[in-house]
Design a protein around this nucleic acid. Sequence first.
RNA 1: GGAUGGUUUCCCGAGUGGCCAAAGGGGACAGACUGUAAAUCUGCUGGCAACGCCUUCGGUGGUUCGAAUCCACCACCAUCCA
Length: 409
Amino acid sequence: MKIYEELVARGLIAQVTDEPEIKELINNGKAKFYIGFDPTADSLHVGHFMALCLMKRLQMAGNQPVVLLGGGTGYIGDPSGRTDMRSMMSPETIQHNCDCFKKQMERFIDFEGENAAIVVNNADWLLKLNYIEVLREVGSCFSVNNMLRAECYKQRMERGLSFLEFNYMIMQSYDFYYLFKNYGCNMQFGGDDQWSNMLGGTELIRKKLGKDAYAMTITLLMNSEGKKMGKTAKGAVWLDPNKTSPFEFYQYWRNVDDADVLKCIRMLTFIPVEEIDQMNSWEGEELNKAKDLLAYELTALVHGKEEAQKAKEASIALFSGVGDDSNMPSTEIRPSDLTDGAVSILDLLTICGLAKSKSEGRRLIQQGGVSVEGKKVEGPEEMITAEALKSGVKIKKGKKVFHRALLAE
RNA sequence: GGAUGGUUUCCCGAGUGGCCAAAGGGGACAGACUGUAAAUCUGCUGGCAACGCCUUCGGUGGUUCGAAUCCACCACCAUCCA
């Protein structure tokens, strides 16, 4: 199976500008493609991960990836698919985020060897553009009528769109044009929400240079309810282990909906398509096996095999009660937190971050949601002794949250 | 620049002087059922030394025994007119 066919089989391709041509290019390793990453945070998240995997797959097929860091576009903020304006970032933040991105990417993409990936930053050319020049050179190629029709602005036409954000499409188009001209970059990939921005680029290249460039979008990873995946109540699922621990990361994937497991395995892992097809017949409880696999594979890709193994073992130990369960998240209790050699369970919950306030902790206990070392906590006054804390105390909140409290020496 | 409407707790949204920590819905969280799933049902959802007290209804002042509610100014948003 060639790479293009594989991408189709995995359900990764959403839209393409010219299918035969793109197939020909990437199947034969003739594409030099770029994906843009705007430095909106100090860590990559699952959405970026998909894009990076795509880069990896294409790189393995002999194509050359160009990573575009949005050090310049970050000053503007992409309005696509958003209901409100992004908060503006300071130059320092943008720079810091770019640096973080770069570091994380090195894990996934090869920056050495034959099709070595290269990194460019659009701050290098966007920041020194001259307004009038751009208007004359580039602005003249865009029809406002067409732009307003673009899907990515639809939502914002109701709630308001600033001129700043409206220009994002032009900047992204200019990027493609610039990379085409100066780096021979003939293709752009991106999330499906980028489609209009990407078309802007191919049109600009056609108008300015009379040449064809191609664009392809990746299916956005949606769950069966039509919501973007990779988000939790607390925010994104990050790739940075300090922001989302490998254990949490593992648990996120372990807990996806039945309806979404196979789709995720297909789109996110490198498991051969044939093997995945065999799982199509799995149903009910059997799907738990697929979830285990998904969680392990992804954690291994992002955090390495060792961390994945630890997360897996911790999960098995915690949920089935056998094996080593020492790898759960833990908090050190300082001696100063104790009074008369003990802490109340209520205080312990807040110290460990399992409850935001004592009221919340009380509520949890009242509703029977807290247990210590497997025994349900009956009341908020229950005390945990320093003696017990010395060897570590296992606290369970709700069904899935496990935490160890350990007395610091 | 002008007119009008708006800004309420995580989100949407009711409340137009005391009965308001503020209806209702969503989400989140917890319990039951389960497969670490979904659906369903139940509870719960500002804080604290907790039948009481404290902080909250865009911001700042004011009127009043008493303000989310009335007044003034400011800020922001939306729609229409320029």
